[in-house]
Structure formats: C-alpha cells, structure tokens
Design a binder for these strands. Structure first.
Lengths: 115, 115
DNA sequence: TTGACATATTCCGATATCGGAATATATTGT
DNA sequence: ACAATATATTCCGATATCGGAATATGTCAA
C-alpha cells in the first residue's frame, strides 16, 4: 500500500491545469466536446478524459444532443473549495482583528493622561 | 516526456489531504513540527516532507527557535485560489442575473394591456 | 447498411507522488 | 567531545497520473 485515494475529489480534480482551463472555458456556457477541443487546442481524447474526471466529481454535467455531448458547469460542487477557503480567510481576518485591537491597546497606553 | 509540472503550485499543494490538515492546524497559530506531529498523529518525516512542499510554494513560513522550527501560515499565498474561485462565482452570479432579467422580461410580456 | 462524424475508452511508457524506514543534520546541555 | 532532542533528507517500493496513439462506441444521413 502506498497511496490512499486519487483524483476522485474536487480538490484534486481542480488541481490539474488543463482541467481548470476546461472549467474556465465552460464559464461562457454549455459547450460540445469538439468546441472545447478547438478552443483549447488540445487532443480530443485528452479533453474527453479530463471531462470524465470532472464529471466523476460532479463539477460538470453532460447532456446528449444528437451525436454531440454538451458539457456545462455545476458550480455548486465548488462548495468544498469555498468552505475550506472561507475557513482560512476567517482565521486570517480574526488574526487581523486581534492585531487591530492590540494596536489600539498600544495606542491607548501611549496616551495616558489624555483628558 | 509524460508529465508536465509537479506539486510545485498552490493548487497541487493544497490538493493533498494531509497538507490541508497541516494548514488547518496552523490556523491556531505558529507551531513546532513536533506539535504538528502530535496533533495530527502522523509520522514526523511525513510532516517534515509535507511542510517542505508547503514551504516551497510559500503557503507556510519557518522560524528557527533553538532546536525547534516554528511554522506559520502565509495566507496571502492563497490568492491564486481566491482569484480562481472568484472568477467562477462571478460567472455564476452573472448567469443568475441574466436568468433573473429573463424571467422579468417574460413576466412583462405576460402583462400586455396592464394600464 | 455503409460511411462520415463526434466522442469515449483502452493501452502504453515515462514520471510524479505518497508512505515507510533508515539515516543525516542541527542544536542544546553536560 | 558526547548524548539527547528536534527536524530534515534520502532511499525505496507501490501506485497514480499524464500524454499520445490507436481503437471502440454511438449517432446521423444517404
């Protein structure tokens, strides 16, 4: 046994540059695989494979239209991301707040006989 | 040639679960390696290795105190993350806005001879 | 059915990555 | 200098991952 999980979570799925590109290009809206291939100038099999990964973690959804498959974003699945980031931003803000009040305390001590 | 870059960017550094745990435990503040080892119940070499990765991408900073090394977060380096996420949230919001106005248009058409 | 088009899957080789164990490198105290 | 403590690095084996090429699957049109 050497490695635990895989690309099977949102963090890993997004960690890949090409996959981020694919997600980015889908911001414009639903796109067929061929369109993504053209837009990003990537080999079609690679695009399909990356779409598979993204699909497995639910970051994109497919819709079949004739012989094409239209992929679209599922931004709700970015939630784990948002949560994690929020946790750290909150921590950062709290630290800044503490620093603020610390600085204010210092300032108050600096003005002893003010009134 | 088979694989491009490595764990050398913020996204990949954060993609690893253990590394996220380490970052999380550092929210409480600066900690020595040994403390992290205790808190997360991980082998010391692993912690050191993960800290190395996090340090390389700048997500943590070290300070030497005697024979201990104190690590602390560098939350500013989460910026690429924030940016990317913001881009997608913005896109989502704009789509919701468009949907809103679309629905409003539909409603207006539905009330033709109002006055 | 056949052929063209669109997409997905499989196979492969190179390499990155992780965990584990052992070991190396400080630094402090005696 | 030596032992003890704290941390970092190296070596290893197992496996995951990526890109590329070839191929399979599915769908439409004639």
């Amino acid at each position: 046994m050497a490695r635990s999980a895989a690309t099977a979570d949102v963090f890993n799925a997004v960690a890949e540059g090409r996959r981020r590109e694919i997600l980015d290009t889908l911001i414009a809206g639903e796109k067929a695989v061929g369109t993504i291939v053209e837009d990003l100038a990537l080999p079609q099999p690679q695009v399909s494979k990356h779409l598979r990964v993204l699909s497995d973690v639910g970051l994109v959804r497919v819709r079949t239209d004739g012989r094409r498959r239209l992929y679209r974003l599922e931004p709700a699945r970015l939630e784990p991301f948002r949560e994690w980031l929020a946790k750290h931003e909150q921590a950062l803000n709290e630290r800044l707040d503490r620093m603020d009040s610390y600085l204010q305390d210092l300032q108050q001590e600096g003005e002893p006989g003010d009134a």
